[in-house]
Amino acid sequence: MIKFKEKLSGRIFFALALSSISVLALITVFIVVKGAPMLGAVGGLSWDPEYGEFGIIPMVIGTLAVTLGAAVIGVPVGICCAIFLAEFAPLKMRNIFRPAIQLLAGIPSVVYGFWGLMFIVPFIRDHLGGAGLSILAGSVVLAIMILPTIISISEVALLSLPPHYKTGSLALGLTHWQTIYHLMLPAAKSGIMAAVILGIGRAVGETMAVILVLGNAVAIPDSILSSVRTLTTSIGIEMGYAEGMHQEALFATGIVLFVMIMIINSLAQYVVRKK
């Protein structure tokens, strides 16, 4: 009887584990089947579904521009914050900062978008010109959204270094900052790289927040104040009413996005393993 129970519970857990993997497989198959017919037709520069033009290059450029902007703003801030938390912050301050940063990760993305629309967009419109709905606005909002990922993973990378690196270096008469810059950061490099790549992965996949602040114009941008559309927002905006070839083109967009994120995540895995 006991043996039977053991076997049964093993089977149940296996079935549940299998179901979560199979969902991944199903989604992949679904997207590929729906999008594959149009995959060859999405290489163009112009997106105008009513006239049968399904080029997603502007969206690819939009995604890359917004993500790059988010990384340029978010990565330095995130890494500095992680160094501060791991090395300089007094215990009490750390105990306030850490949960606060985790809370940042829990805010729904539409709230970030709404906040960006109410504060960042008008700020850019008033001080830098243009409509305000722009790459810059999207980058700022995304930069804040990827901070928790970058900070917490980099901080763990720094804290998990053997303590003797630091003691050894300080005993050699190096200052705290020299120790961090010349020893701890290089030693934690792979963890910090992984943090950055995962942050970027999050930025690429984000939809709701950027829908509200990018303006969503399908055009190749000429400055950081231009309005753009990303791959995710394109799907988010049009999928509700799309039919036929249009719908298939959106699924093809999904394939492109899927592949981009797969590449980014495997890059992160590779960087961590290479260590």
Binding site: H164, Y165, G168, S169, A171, L183, A187
Partner: peptide, 10 residues
């Protein structure tokens, strides 16, 4: 100072 376990830096 030299410590009780070898502490080479990476």
């Amino acid at each position: 100072m030299v410590f009780d376990v070898p502490t080479p830096l990476p």
